[in-house]
């Protein structure tokens, strides 16, 4: 009996820290086998890639925690970049960047209101938003990349690329600060804990005096704002907003969040783990490229990893469901009688 509990505890610990183990594994393997992997330049470039998707993953994790889904993050990233850079010549970054972030928040607010108040399934709302925003982006830009070419924009772009601390550029630092503060907010404050409660069981949360609708709406707003921050900062660094900027982010962030151990069913997950998962995936992709393998191998491997993580979780749940309500000690007794 005692032995069994220990085994269970180890398994659950393994589950919780799975993503850290995975990260160390990927990192060690790449260090050993991928040429030119372990040097300051490459590690910096990994961290730069992590900065955008890591920020976006914060919002997406919170959305999953409250038990919803946001398919529109990819287009919000691009939309914010287009707004921020497109309005720069007219009003300057001082106004256009906050505007871009507010736009992201507003889109999140619309999503949230439609989900919580009109009670349309979030899958549908954000799917409609994805289509509508995609159209809006192309209508605004006419299908062209927006580039800013004046000195001020280049100066800011240079500053964003410069390493304040070795290997950490401003964007990376902003991402880490956001991740840590949201992590603490979710874990350590009552309001933060309420997000988990809403996602775990929204009826119970409501009965316990938590306004579930409000938390759902706030989650969507956070998701919109985070996507906008990720997008605008990335665009400012490259001084250009391409129209496929956020295209891959949905799959990237969704995979990372799930692999990081946040549950689609709601009520379970963590921002920091999602961030580490983004880091893991980015390291993996970077290593694959350095190993001389193509984009197709990257897609294939990340598909396999995501699928196996999902299947593993489902299998654990399946085995758990099978023995729920069974009383092994009574069965044993029955056997000894016979």
């Amino acid at each position: 009996m005692r032995n069994k509990i220990n085994k269970k505890q180890i398994l659950s610990l393994g589950d919780r820290y799975r993503i850290y183990v995975l990260f160390v594994l990927v990192f060690v393997v790449m260090t050993l086998f991928a040429p030119h992997f372990f040097n300051a330049w490459n590690l910096t470039s990994i961290m730069k890639t992590v900065a955008m998707n890591g920020t976006v993953a914060i919002g997406f994790t919170i959305i999953l925690i409250v038990g919803q889904l946001d398919l529109s993050i990819g287009t919000i990233i691009t939309f914010a970049a287009v707004i921020g850079l497109g309005l720069k010549d007219a009003v300057g970054y001082g106004v256009s960047v906050p505007l871009a972030i507010i736009a992201g928040g507003l889109i999140g607010l619309i999503n949230g209101l439609l989900v919580a108040k009109v009670k349309i399934n979030s899958f549908i709302v954000t799917l409609g938003m994805l289509t509508a925003l995609q159209g809006a982006i192309y209508t605004i830009t006419g299908g062209n990349t927006i580039a800013v070419t004046d000195d001020q924009a280049f100066a800011i772009s240079d500053w964003l690329q410069h390493q304040i601390v070795p290997m950490l550029t401003p964007r990376v630092i902003i991402a880490i600060v956001l991740v840590v503060s949201f992590s603490i907010f979710l874990r350590r404050t009552r309001k933060g804990r309420n997000f988990f409660m809403v996602g775990g069981n929204s009826k119970t949360a409501w009965l316990a005096g938590v306004d579930s609708d409000k938390y759902t709406i706030v989650a969507f707003v956070i998701s919109g704002v985070m996507a906008a921050i990720g997008g605008i900062l990335f665009a400012m660094e490259s001084a250009a907003a391409t129209l496929n900027l956020g295209t891959n982010s949905l799959m990237y962030v969704l995979s990372a969040t799930i692999i990081g151990g946040t549950s689609m069913a709601g009520g379970k997950g963590g921002v920091f783990r999602s961030f580490i998962a983004v880091l893991t995936l980015t390291t993996l992709y970077n290593g694959i490229v350095l190993l001389g393998l193509g984009n197709e191998v990257q897609i294939f491997i990340s598909g396999i990893i995501l699928a196996s993580v999902i299947l593993y979780e489902a299998f654990v749940e399946y085995r758990h469901d099978k023995v729920v309500g069974q009383r092994p000690e009574l069965l044993k007794e029955l056997n000894t009688i016979q």
Binding site: I120, G128, M129, T131, A132, G135, Y138, T139, G143
Partner: peptide
């Protein structure tokens, strides 16, 4: 592209 936008809105 505007079609996309209108389609999304009508859908919702």
């Amino acid at each position: 592209f505007s079609q996309d936008m209108i389609r999304g809105i009508i859908f919702i």
